[in-house]
Structure formats: C-alpha cells, structure tokens
Design a protein around this nucleic acid. Structure first.
Lengths: 147, 147
DNA sequence: GAAGTAGGTCAAGATGGTTGACTCAAAGCG
DNA sequence: CGCTTTGAGTCAACCATCTTGACCTACTTC
C-alpha cells in the first residue's frame, strides 16, 4: 500500500507537469495569436534573445527541429522586422540571427508573461522552496542533453 | 542590477520548464511511435485510467479540445481494443470510457516511463526538496482551472 | 580542384488541432 | 404529449507544425 500511494503521488506529479506546462504556454499563445504568430515564433525569439548572433544551425540543434521546420517562422519574423539575419564576418556561410528593437520588445512581452506567472506562484512560497523547485527543474532539464 | 539578476534567474526557470517538459514527453513518444500512436492517444489513456468511466464530454473539458479533435484517436484506441465505450446506465446519451486490460497495460508503460524519470530526478535530492517541488508544481497546475 | 559544411528550397505527407454545420437519440420539461 | 436541450457522431474545409528526402548554391577547407 505504501508503494501504491507513492505511485499515485508520482502520477499526480506527471499530471501537474502537464497542466502546469499547458497554462504556462497558453499565456504567450494569446499574445502571439493577436499578431498572427505561433509558438514556433516565440521559441525562435527566445533563443535568439538568449544568445544574440546565434547561427541558424545552432538554433536548429537547440530546438531539435529540421531546417525546413524553422524556415517559415524565421522568414516571417524577418519580414516583420523582428529579426535580422546577417552573414558571419569570418565564415560567410553562417548566418547570424539577432533581434531588432521590436523583436526584443515582443520577446520581452512573451517571456515576460511567463516570468510574471512564475513570480505569482513563487509569491505563495518562501525563498527556500523556490530555490529547491529551481534545482529540481534544472536537473529535469539537464536530462535533455542526453536523450 | 539585483533586479536584472532576478530576471535572468526567472528566464532560466522558463527555459528549464521548456527543456524539462520536452524530455518528459519525448519518453512516451518513443513507445507510442512503435505502435503507430501519438501523444493524443496517451492523453486519452491517462485520463481514462485516472477516472475510469469518464464521459466523453468531461474528457473534452479536461483536455480542452473539441469533439472533432478527440474523435480519431478515441476510435483508434477502441479499434485496438485498448478502450471500451459503453452508454451510461441512467443517461443513455452519455458514453462512458474505460480502459481494457491491454489499455491499462499500455498506459502504465507510458506514464510509468515518466514516473521513473521523476524518480530518477528525485533520487538526487532529499525528501524535503521533493515535497517543495511538488507543492510549487501543484500551484502552477492550479492556475489552469482559471484561464 | 575536390570534398565538406551552412543554408535554402521544393515536394509530399503525418499529426493534431480548428470552425461550422448538420444529424440523431435520449432526456427534461411545460 | 410535444418541444427543447443535451451528448455525441460526422462531414468538410482548413491551418500550424513538423517530418523525410532530394537537390541546389555558396563558401570554406584541405
């Protein structure tokens, strides 16, 4: 019985991760929809903002998608003037991506919505709890590199 | 500076949630792919297992999708003998879903993979950390009911 | 000069959703 | 009893995102 109680607890964790993530992504989705954009655009904006001048190939590796998949959203963002693509000074095959002022603004709005949601959750707990949650989440994210 | 450090920390949390969730779902995805099934099938199996005899309409509300979206995966699962649909004894309009033995087995395999991943992560932390992580995750999942 | 690398593009297809309209059977109600 | 509502199924058209596979160009490297 102890074991099945433990299993139930873990299943509830799986569920919390599912529901939590769903709300978490639905926030920026609404903002994106107003502009006719989707999640794919947010992911690109986020990683470009995190790593300005990132090469297209590195972006593909990070997102674990094919170049065909990134093509359309990337072009959309460029056309909207939210991103700039420019060849690397040394290796001209490589195209480096940076956000424009507008792009940075939108990215801040999108990720900001998620950050504010986290802040609101953390407000219900003490600093120690937040630190421990963060440690577990990072450990969970680490596994990513392997599989 | 203190504030921007805080913002960087929170952005990293957003990222950890993204990466963590991605690995988390990629596990069952592989098992599903072997059977020619997708995530939609897992979600149905999970919630039917959690709430045996759940009505189709309630499943739709939980998953926040339309009946047209659930239709195909539901029929797939029925054809494969993983689910059983039967009219409610009182209200014959309502169709109640239950998992078959095979369906329960597959569900256990799928969610079990996720549970084992969580166990492996928790193994790196003490019980207190796990409890606190769980509390934050549940709070995050709660927000779901609103938006 | 040949081979390898970064990236772009065309094509076809899978998945997983959407909106909208319509049907049917059963239930609820005046 | 008849009308309305409700739960569900289905057809159609459409959209977003992603895939595999093939092929091309420009540039770098050896």
């Amino acid at each position: 019985m102890v074991d099945s109680k433990r299993q139930r607890e873990l299943r509830q964790d799986v569920e919390a991760l599912y529901f939590g993530y769903r709300t978490f992504t639905s926030l920026p989705d609404r903002i994106l929809a107003e502009r006719g954009l989707g999640r794919a655009h947010h992911r690109i904006l986020y990683f470009v903002q995190r790593e300005p001048g990132i090469a297209i190939g590195d972006l593909l590796s990070l997102l674990k998608v094919t170049k065909q998949a990134i093509h359309r959203p990337l072009k959309d963002l460029e056309k909207l003037g939210l991103l700039t693509l420019a060849p690397d000074a040394q290796d001209k095959r490589i195209r480096r991506i940076t956000t424009s002022a507008d792009g940075a603004l939108l990215e801040a709005q999108l990720t900001g919505a998620q950050v504010r949601m986290l802040e609101s959750v953390f407000a219900d707990f003490d600093a120690e709890t937040e630190t421990r949650w963060r440690a577990v989440m990072r450990r969970l994210a680490e596994d990513n590199q392997e599989g």
